[in-house]
Design a protein around this nucleic acid. Structure first.
Length: 427
RNA sequence: GUGGAUAUAGUUCAGUUGGUUAGAACGCCAGAUUGUGGCUCUGGAGGUCGUGGGUUCGAGUCCCACUAUCCACCCCA
C-alpha cells in the first residue's frame, strides 16, 4: 500500500514524460495557430460548481466526484472535467468585458471515482478548449477543426468525427416528450437501466449499447426531426462548413453526451484503437452554462480530449517515437587523482550549454566507457597522466571510435563545433 | 456499484498429479594480462512465490478472505 500509487492513478516516469512534453508542445502550437490562449484553473473547486454546471442527475455528480470537506467545512471537489471551472473563471474575472470571442485552452488533470479499465483512470488528463461569446456555427466548426487538425498533424488519419445536434431547450423538450411517449409504450423491451433513464434523462437511452434497446430505438423519433428552424439552420451550416473544408464526418443521432450543459451541437472523435472507451475527444456547444453559473448570457463551445487515450492510440500506431535524451560529453578521469580536473571541466561544459556527465561511482575506466555508451554520450574526454603532463585532452567520438588530442583551452570550441544536432531534441 | 480473468526476480515469463537448495531470458554489477565502450564469453547480486488465514506429514501449486492489476458493464476523456 505504502509503495503503491492509489488505484486508478499512474506515475509518469522519465521515459513517458518525454511523450507528454512532446504532445503538450504540439497542442500549444495548434492552439497558437487558432489563437486560443492558455488558462490554468485550480485543481479543486467548490462542489456546487459541478452540481450546478455539470448537472445534478449526471453520473459524474451522482457517483463519481472526489468530494471532501476542508478544515473549515467547505465542500470541495477535485475537478472531474474542465469546462465548468473555465466558465467559472470566465465569469469571476469578467472576461466577457474583453473583446469577444474569448478563446481559451487548457491542459489539466481530472478526477473521477470509477472502476479503472482500458482508457479510464481515476486521475486522467485532458487537453481542452473553450470559445466564449459567439453563437456562430462557424465557432462550432473551429472547435472541431482544432481537434481534428491536431490529431491529423500527429499522423492519425483514420479517426472519425461524429456529429449530432440535440437542439436548444425548446426543441429538445418537444423531442424528449415525443421520445418518452414512444419509449413508454415499449417500456418492457428496454433494459433495466434504460427504464430508469426513461424517467430521469431519456436522451441517454439513445446511446445504450444493449441490442434490445437498439432494436426498440430503430422506430423511435429522431432528434434531428424535432429541431426548430434556428437549430436546424445552425446544424446545416456546420455540415456545409465541414464539406467546404473537406472534413469527413458522420451524422450520428446516437451521440447525446452525458453532461447536462450541452445544447445544439455535440460531437465525438472516435478511434478503433481504443478498447470499449473509443472516444478520444468529445465536445459541443453549451449556450446556457455561463448564465446558469451566474454570468451573463453567453453562448459557448468547446471540447475535452483524453491525453492518456491519445497516447494509447499513437503508441498502437507507432507514431510516438521520442528520441532518447543524449549527453554531449562524458568526462572520464582515469583515477580519483584526476577528479578535480574533471570536476572543473564538467561545470565549464555545463556553463557553456553543453550537456556533460562524469563518474560518481568510482568506476574503472572500462566501466566508465560502458557507462558513457549507455547514456549515449557523443564524446568522451579522458583525463589521465598523459593529459595532465601534456596539456592536451584525449577526446573520443563514440560513434566513429576516432580519438584525438585537443589542446586544453580549445576543448570547448572543439566540442561545441562538433556536436551533432538533432540529438535528444523533440522535433 | 456489478461481472470475468490474473497476481512467481527490476522486466517478460516457466514451474510437471501438492514433495526436499524456486528456474530461464532480458536488464543490472564485475571480470576476460595491466589507460578505452558497443559484439562475444565467464561469473555475481537480486525472490518471506500480492497479503492474511485454512486444508495437509508437506503448498508457488488446493480452498477462503482481503488488496491490486487487466478486461467488460454502467458512464465518460
Amino acid at each position: 500500500m505504502l509503495t503503491q500509487a492509489p488505484r486508478g492513478t499512474r506515475d509518469i516516469l522519465p521515459e513517458e514524460a518525454g511523450k507528454w512534453v512532446f504532445l503538450e508542445n504540439k497542442f500549444r502550437e495548434i492552439c497558437r495557430r487558432f489563437s486560443y490562449k492558455e488558462i490554468r484553473t485550480p485543481v479543486f473547486e467548490h462542489t456546487e460548481l459541478f452540481q450546478r454546471g455539470v448537472g445534478e442527475t449526471t453520473d459524474i455528480v451522482e457517483k463519481e466526484m472526489y468530494t471532501f470537506l476542508d478544515k473549515s467545512g467547505r465542500s470541495i471537489t477535485l475537478k472531474p472535467e474542465g469546462t465548468a471551472p473555465t466558465a467559472r473563471a470566465y465569469i469571476e474575472h469578467k472576461l466577457y468585458t474583453q473583446t469577444l470571442p474569448v478563446k481559451l485552452f487548457y491542459i489539466i488533470p481530472g478526477f473521477r471515482y470509477e472502476r479503472p479499465q482500458a482508457g479510464r483512470l481515476r486521475e486522467f488528463h485532458q487537453f481542452g478548449i473553450e470559445a466564449f461569446g459567439s453563437e456562430s456555427p462557424h465557432i462550432d466548426v473551429e472547435v472541431m477543426l482544432l481537434a481534428v487538425s491536431f490529431l491529423k498533424n500527429l499522423g492519425l488519419d483514420d479517426i472519425k468525427l461524429h456529429i449530432n445536434s440535440i437542439g436548444c431547450e425548446t426543441c429538445r423538450s418537444d423531442y424528449v416528450k415525443a421520445l418518452k411517449d414512444f419509449l413508454g409504450e415499449s417500456r418492457q423491451n428496454l433494459c433495466d437501466t434504460c427504464r430508469s433513464r426513461l424517467d430521469r434523462n431519456p436522451l441517454r437511452v439513445l446511446d445504450c449499447k444493449n441490442p434490445d434497446c437498439q432494436r426498440t430505438l430503430k422506430e423511435a423519433p429522431a432528434v434531428l426531426d424535432f429541431l426548430c428552424e434556428k437549430c436546424k439552420t445552425h446544424f446545416e451550416t456546420i455540415k456545409n462548413d465541414l464539406s467546404l473544408l473537406k472534413i469527413d464526418y458522420k451524422v450520428d443521432p446516437r451521440i447525446v453526451r452525458g453532461l447536462d450543459y450541452y445544447t445544439r451541437t455535440v460531437f465525438e472523435i472516435i478511434s478503433d484503437d481504443l478498447g470499449a472507451q473509443s472516444t478520444v475527444c468529445g465536445g459541443g456547444r453549451y449556450d446556457n452554462l455561463v448564465q446558469e453559473c451566474g454570468g451573463p448570457t453567453t453562448p459557448a463551445a468547446g471540447f475535452g480530449m483524453g491525453i492518456e487515450r491519445l497516447i494509447t492510440i499513437l503508441e498502437k500506431k507507432n507514431l510516438l517515437k521520442i528520441p532518447e535524451e543524449k549527453v554531449d560529453v562524458y568526462i572520464a578521469p582515469l583515477t580519483e587523482e584526476y577528479g578535480n580536473t574533471a570536476l572543473r571541466l564538467l561545470y565549464r561544459f555545463r556553463e557553456n550549454g553543453i550537456s556533460a556527465e562524469t563518474d560518481y561511482l568510482k568506476r574503472s575506466l572500462k566501466a566508465q566507457m560502458k557507462y558513457a555508451d549507455k547514456i549515449m554520450a557523443q564524446f568522451v574526454v579522458l583525463i589521465g597522466e598523459e593529459e595532465e603532463s601534456s596539456g592536451f585532452y584525449t577526446v573520443k567520438d563514440l560513434a566513429t571510435g576516432q580519438q584525438q588530442k585537443v589542446a586544453g583551452d580549445k576543448i570547448f570550441e572543439y566540442i561545441s563545433n562538433n556536436i551533432r544536432k538533432g540529438c535528444g531534441e523533440v522535433e
